[in-house]
Amino acid sequence: MKLLGSLTSPYTRKVRVVMAEKKLDHELILENVWSADSDIGRYNPLGKIPCLLFDDDSSLFDSRVIVEYLDTLSPVGRLIPQSGRERAATKCWEAIADGLLDAAVAIHIERNRRPPELYYADWVTRQEGKIHAALEHMNTALGEQPFCTGISFTLADIAVGCALGFLDLRLPCINWRESFPNLDRLHEKLLERPSFSSTIPPQQA
């Protein structure tokens, strides 16, 4: 398998962590979707990463779809419960982590891609509110549990860890560690895993 993505994309990182946890071999192909000569549209009509490519030139896109597929490739180290309320809870954690990411990415684009004269401060404030609400919810829901859904490491933890890592990369002004100690504890635990420590995004990018 080949994975189209970038080293700074938190959605790509989520897929890479899942691949590492599942011990799935793949080739990472770096793709800049902002480049005029980007080939991403050939594989994803929405022009977004990550994309998982197969030998027959077909593809899967959207990190949530990709990780769902990857988890079926091996029964070892299941990251998504197969049915019932536990599965729904895991996917709900992923949804709120991805929602936090969507807001953070929107702020980053507004601040770095939009011309200064078109900067929309109220939009940024709205996205910041979503981020803080998501952090508050996740910190409370996590409580003293070792992992998001209880005692087992799941996709929920991967999604949350990647979201927190992206805040460190693009929005360091959000001092989430001091305000949300439960998430800080989880994040430090996740960084002890090779899947997380090996996919920390480069700060200079």
Rank of each mutant, 00 (worst) to 15 (best):
74 S>G: 07
98 D>C: 07
112 N>E: 02
107 I>Y: 02
121 A>P: 04
113 R>E: 07
109 I>L: 15
85 R>N: 11
110 E>M: 02
104 A>E: 12
127 Q>P: 04
128 E>K: 13
70 L>G: 03
120 Y>D: 14
115 P>C: 02
116 P>V: 04
104 A>W: 11
132 H>S: 11
118 L>W: 13
89 A>K: 13
126 R>H: 15
94 E>A: 09
123 W>I: 00
88 A>N: 06
79 L>R: 04
101 L>Q: 11
75 P>W: 04
68 E>G: 06
66 I>Y: 11
105 V>W: 06
107 I>E: 01
84 G>I: 01
87 R>G: 03
95 A>S: 14
107 I>Q: 01
90 T>S: 13
131 I>D: 05
88 A>L: 09
82 Q>N: 12
79 L>V: 10
88 A>S: 11
71 D>G: 05
103 A>T: 03
109 I>R: 15
125 T>L: 13
80 I>A: 01
72 T>Q: 15
107 I>G: 00
113 R>Y: 09
127 Q>N: 13
104 A>N: 12
103 A>P: 05
75 P>S: 02
68 E>C: 01
125 T>D: 14
69 Y>P: 07
98 D>N: 06
72 T>P: 05
103 A>R: 04
126 R>L: 13
93 W>D: 06
95 A>C: 08
79 L>K: 01
116 P>N: 02
71 D>M: 10
74 S>Q: 08
96 I>V: 15
101 L>R: 03
112 N>W: 00
65 V>M: 11
130 K>Y: 13
115 P>V: 00
101 L>F: 02
86 E>R: 13
102 D>T: 14
115 P>Q: 00
116 P>H: 02
109 I>S: 11
110 E>Y: 00
120 Y>S: 07
78 R>N: 10
118 L>N: 12
131 I>F: 05
77 G>Q: 07
114 R>H: 07
111 R>W: 06
82 Q>K: 13
131 I>C: 06
125 T>R: 15
114 R>Q: 06
124 V>G: 03
75 P>Y: 02
113 R>K: 09
110 E>P: 00
123 W>D: 04
78 R>D: 09
81 P>T: 09
66 I>C: 10
86 E>T: 07
69 Y>Q: 05
100 L>C: 07
76 V>T: 10
120 Y>K: 08
83 S>G: 02
70 L>A: 04
126 R>W: 13
75 P>Q: 02
66 I>N: 12
100 L>V: 12
125 T>W: 03
74 S>C: 04
88 A>V: 11
66 I>K: 10
79 L>Y: 05
100 L>K: 00
124 V>I: 11
94 E>T: 07
79 L>F: 04
86 E>N: 12
72 T>N: 09
119 Y>F: 15
92 C>Q: 15
67 V>G: 08
75 P>N: 02
86 E>Y: 04
107 I>V: 01
107 I>L: 01
107 I>H: 00
73 L>K: 10
72 T>R: 14
128 E>M: 14
73 L>S: 03
109 I>K: 12
113 R>I: 03
109 I>C: 10
66 I>L: 10
97 A>V: 07
70 L>N: 09
64 R>E: 14
69 Y>W: 11
109 I>F: 15
129 G>Q: 04
127 Q>E: 14
80 I>V: 08
90 T>L: 03
76 V>K: 09
87 R>L: 03
115 P>K: 00
82 Q>C: 08
64 R>K: 15
